[in-house]
């Protein structure tokens, strides 16, 4: 993918640039908000990664100007830590996701990847009534799950968790992404909410069938590979 990174701190910017380049992305790294706005308007990018506090023009203003210019490129915000308001402000201004500094690179990688491969028409996936991966089938209307033709009885959160993993379509879901999607929690609990539910879900979807569906990616998150 082609990515734009707006980050004024040299070291962090370098780290993000190196990391994303190593993943095989083409990265434009800019330190000034005005340059980022110009680049974002002229070039085509898959994802824009904008820091909130940047010289020239801050990230939020860059986003607003881009959206005003009908640039619909997905935007990931890098927000200062502890600022819940910044996150909400960013999302309200048309940002698609946010990441609180300091962040794990695995988190950035997973979120950029999720944003970049969003379907062109956002509605098309959510209008589906059935999700299928391997031999697992989710009936979204009846909230029913079956594997290899056998009904699997999942509770609400287990179903939502499995749905989130299947919808990710082979991409890694981090703990925080799952917390946001399934439990609507925008903070990182120190206890193992996600791990516990993954383990219970595995008990129902894997154990009776004797194989592994949900793969744990060490230090990153979970993925269901098709």
């Amino acid at each position: 993918m082609r990515l734009l990174v707006l980050e004024d701190d040299a070291e962090i910017g370098q780290w993000v640039y190196d990391g994303l380049s190593r993943e095989g992305h083409v990265v434009d790294w800019l330190k000034d908000g005005r340059e980022a706005l110009a680049a974002g308007t002229v070039n085509f990018y898959d994802v824009l990664i904008l820091d909130r506090m940047t010289p020239g023009l801050d990230g939020l203003s860059v986003l607003k100007a881009l959206r005003a210019a009908k640039v619909a490129t997905p935007v990931l915000f890098l927000t200062a830590m502890g600022d819940v308001d910044d996150r909400v402000e960013g999302l309200e201004a048309g940002g698609d996701d946010y990441l609180t500094k300091p962040f794990a690179f695995s988190e950035l990688r997973a979120r950029v990847s999720a944003l970049g491969r969003r379907p062109a028409q956002a509605g098309s996936v959510s209008e589906q009534t059935h999700l299928v991966v391997r031999d697992i089938e989710l009936d979204l209307l009846k909230r029913k799950c079956s594997r290899a033709g056998q009904d699997v009885d999942l509770n609400g959160k287990e179903f939502a968790l499995l749905e989130a993993l299947i919808r990710a379509n082979g991409r890694i879901q981090t703990r925080n992404m799952l917390l946001e999607k399934v439990w609507n929690m925008n903070f990182d609990p120190t206890t193992s909410v996600v791990e516990t539910h993954i383990s219970r879900l595995r008990g129902k979807i894997e154990k009776p069938f004797g194989d592994t569906v949900i793969k744990t990616v060490r230090g990153a998150g979970y993925v269901i590979e098709s």
Binding site: E11, I12, W15, P102
Partner: peptide, 20 residues
């Protein structure tokens, strides 16, 4: 807290690189 944010971010980044 704000001033420590940047060095913490860098430190975390280095540690993560190291771990990987």
């Amino acid at each position: 807290a704000h001033d420590l944010k940047t060095p913490l971010t860098r430190l975390r980044a280095r540690l993560e690189t190291l771990a990987e």
